[in-house]
Amino acid sequence: MITTMIMRGIRMDEFLWRVVLAATGVALAAGPLGCFVVWRRMVYFGDTISHAALLGVAFALASGLPVFLGVLLCALAIAAVILLAEGRLHHTDTLLGVSAHSALALGLVAVAFLNGVKVDLMSYLIGDILAVNWQDVAVVWTGAIGCLGLLIWRWRPLLVSSLDREMALAHGQNPRKESIIFTLALAILVAAAIKVVGALLITALLIIPAATGRLGGNTPEKMAVMAALAAVLAALLGLFGSFQWDTPTGPSVVVAALFLLILASLVTRIFRPR
């Protein structure tokens, strides 16, 4: 395997920098954004948007657009459909169930239709971080900074609208606008993360570090910082494990995040006075 060949030398070469930077970039933004996914109870929505990413890949490959742009446009299109339908249909849960799995299935079918284009489907489903080039790293960090920038810019109104829609309205805010900002941040992250963790596992990288962050934070800000730290640590541990045992990188990062959550739960259990 190319991995083991490269890793034979222990020195921090250029390849390793690329991989580490790509993984930490995605993780840094996924932590805080994941907190909002949890607070807004939109885990299923996150699933839908990330599954739509595969459709975006097919769209990008067919149209010759960069993958980031194709995924971003597709994620936004699906999000727009859901946000528009949400006001009209009452069974949001059903709506999300339908769209999450339809988006995935449509994506798989669409990729199969791409005659003549050789697509490694697995690399988009579970990510292929070892194949990232410097351009990908730049895309990841642009997306991560864009996503974090949106969250920081709208932090207070986003928090209030996540707490209670009517309270936000009484404060003179527009929860619909915050909902669009949140969706935009989510779509950007999904587009940035597709090559790193893949369409199937993006939600995991959003939710698991947020759950870990919850254990260490008694305010939303502390939770978000802890989630970012947990996500970055999971990314580094996952990469290390992946190199060490030659396991697929995306899933390894998710397993590392889970390991951290369990560890943090145990530590909290033991040290928190009852």
């Binding site: 949890v38 109870r41 707490l163 209670d164 309270m167 919850r214 008694n218 939303p220 502390k222």
Partner: peptide, 12 residues
């Protein structure tokens, strides 16, 4: 508001 739907996942 009548009530606030705030669950344990939201540290506040």
């Amino acid at each position: 508001p009548q009530k606030l739907h705030l669950d344990q996942a939201f540290p506040m």
